[in-house]
Design a protein around this nucleic acid. Structure first.
Lengths: 120, 120
DNA sequence: CAGCATCCCAAAAGATACTG
DNA sequence: CAGTATCTTTTGGGATGCTG
């Protein structure tokens, strides 16, 4: 009944001693093939839907819509639709999302230091 | 022939002015359901295969193997097999991987500041 | 113990056509 | 212009059985 005490202690250590869950929580809203790129573009300036589409060569209209909706639901992007004809919709990053900059910067710094690690 | 000059300029800006590619390059080796958790565990100390398995409840043997192999190929994890019977294999993070700590910390700091953003 | 080989499934992403 | 609706494809991950 107690041969696995060490394992249990291990698990407790991981989950309680370190900000384990917060890390995973923080990563989740950015998972998706295009989300980081979208955030990157919006971090530069506000974009219209079509601008964003052209700024991300290869993305489909469908995927851009889907991922923007998810980013919006996660509070990282703000969508503003203007009732005009033809319609105009603008996307910008939220205040909360600006806080991600240090993360991006740290990651880039690391990437530069250790160089591109190509797997293939 | 030149109505799209603005778009081209935009793309150039994203890809040349900002460390766009480095960022994506840096993220790639960490994509995979368990990689961050594996790195987290190994950041605490060296683990044997079985220890790692027990430390990550829910992971399958198959996935642990696959993701460890990828992390190894990306130079984030070092694998050492001892020729014993029964066999013993130890995993540890590499020097390069230690540089990721600031990234993790920045992400966690951001996560704490803006709280958990639940989508559901 | 630490795995590899297979087969299978669900989720994510892409292609295409259509619309307020 | 900025989407939505469907359908198909791809990818990642899981289950199971076998082995040096």
């Amino acid at each position: 009944m107690n041969e696995k005490v060490d394992d249990k202690a291990l698990q407790t250590a991981y989950r309680e001693q370190y900000p384990y869950q917060p890390f995973l929580e923080a990563m989740r809203p950015l998972t998706g093939k295009w989300k980081v790129e979208i955030m990157w573009a919006l971090a530069q300036r506000t974009h219209r839907f079509g601008e964003l589409r052209r700024a991300l060569p290869g993305i489909t209209q469908h995927m851009l819509t889907v991922q923007l909706r998810e980013l919006e639901a996660d509070g990282l992007v703000k969508r503003t639709a203007y009732e005009e004809k033809p319609p105009r919709v603008e996307y910008e990053i939220t205040e909360a999302a600006h806080g991600l900059r240090p993360v991006f910067e740290a990651l880039i710094a690391w990437s530069k230091q250790y160089g591109p690690m190509s797997r293939n």
